[in-house]
Simulated assay, not measured.
Amino acid sequence: MAEDFKKITEQNSNYNDLEQKSVSELTEIINNEDKTVAQAVEEVLPQIKNLIESVIKQVKSGGRLFYIGAGTSGRLGILDASECPPTFGVSDDVVIGLIAGGDQAIRKAVEFAEDNTELGWQDLKAYNIHKRDIVIGIAASGTTPYVLGAVKDCKSHDIPTGCITCNPKSPLANAVDFPIEVVVGPEVITGSSRMKAGTAQKMILNMISTALMIKLDRVKGHKMVDMQLSNHKLVNRGVQMIREALHIDETQAKALLDEHQSVRQAIAYGQKTHQ
């Protein structure tokens, strides 16, 4: 571990006697700290760009994007991965989220699962991981053994890697090809990286998956034309997209959507027949 590595995520909070503060004071403190997160993310946009470009390259070559993490970091990766199929209509094996301890750890912590340096690679091997894939380790500390072991094994198998961490010069950042070190400073509650660190991770994950899906042509203009029509709200949204694209009334748009069961296909058919 580098001599100058310091766990900023574990440094003492800038606030004392939290239990004595009013709810109004607490919300103001938390909000003020949250305001600093977007600026911290902005400072690492070049690193985010580099990682996203590699992700796009790998996925377009037939690979998959894996997120791997423990605790909050693992849950955020799974959240981002799980939202890609309904939002963009891709298969659920394009973006895959893994968490130390398996799916049961999504809801309830699995003791010491994150301390196993071999478990991450085992979880990846269960998906027959290969060189066209890319793995992003998510760990606020940059030291989580489950994540660190996984990316090191990926490197030894020539699988490209990236990371999202909130401590500079961490072992995790040093172990990957495309490190993102977003330094948000101490948490309001000392060491509670579900707060600012988690917010920063969520923002960056949003960028990665959204940019990837746009570059995979899963967005037309600014519309989610490949979204799964899984509830009335989304069906209604789809009808409005078709109306706007084809300049037709709601009844006609609804008929096209009912026929094609896809916003993209309905628009394409409508544009073809109106030529």
Score class of each variant (00 low, 15 high):
1 M>W: 08
10 E>W: 02
13 S>Y: 09
14 N>G: 13
15 Y>C: 02
18 L>W: 11
19 E>Y: 09
24 S>G: 09
26 L>W: 05
26 L>Y: 05
29 I>G: 06
29 I>C: 06
30 I>Y: 13
31 N>A: 11
39 Q>V: 13
42 E>H: 09
44 V>F: 09
47 Q>Y: 08
54 S>I: 06
55 V>S: 00
56 I>Y: 01
57 K>H: 12
58 Q>G: 03
60 K>A: 07
60 K>S: 12
60 K>C: 11
63 G>V: 06
63 G>C: 09
65 L>E: 00
65 L>F: 04
67 Y>E: 02
67 Y>S: 01
68 I>P: 01
70 A>R: 10
71 G>M: 10
72 T>G: 11
73 S>Y: 10
77 G>R: 05
78 I>H: 08
78 I>E: 03
80 D>I: 03
80 D>M: 00
80 D>R: 05
83 E>M: 04
88 F>K: 02
88 F>D: 01
91 S>G: 12
93 D>L: 02
94 V>E: 00
95 V>C: 14
95 V>H: 07
97 G>M: 11
100 A>I: 12
106 I>G: 07
108 K>C: 10
109 A>T: 09
116 N>C: 11
119 L>H: 11
120 G>E: 10
121 W>T: 04
124 L>I: 02
126 A>G: 06
127 Y>W: 15
128 N>V: 04
129 I>S: 12
135 V>Y: 11
136 I>M: 00
137 G>T: 04
141 S>V: 02
141 S>T: 00
147 V>F: 07
148 L>K: 08
149 G>L: 10
152 K>S: 13
153 D>L: 06
153 D>G: 05
158 D>L: 11
164 I>W: 05
167 N>D: 09
171 P>H: 01
180 I>A: 13
181 E>P: 04
184 V>Q: 01
186 P>T: 00
188 V>H: 06
190 T>L: 11
191 G>Y: 09
197 A>S: 14
198 G>Y: 06
202 K>S: 08
204 I>W: 03
204 I>K: 06
206 N>F: 07
207 M>L: 00
210 T>S: 14
210 T>K: 08
214 I>P: 01
216 L>D: 10
219 V>P: 01
219 V>G: 03
219 V>Q: 07
220 K>A: 12
222 H>W: 03
223 K>H: 11
224 M>L: 15
225 V>P: 02
228 Q>T: 13
228 Q>V: 14
229 L>G: 06
232 H>R: 08
233 K>W: 08
233 K>D: 06
235 V>N: 04
241 M>P: 00
241 M>C: 00
242 I>T: 03
250 E>M: 07
253 A>V: 01
258 D>M: 05
258 D>R: 05
259 E>C: 04
260 H>R: 00
260 H>C: 01
261 Q>R: 13
261 Q>F: 06
264 R>G: 12
264 R>C: 11
265 Q>K: 15
266 A>T: 01
268 A>R: 09
274 H>N: 12
275 Q>R: 13
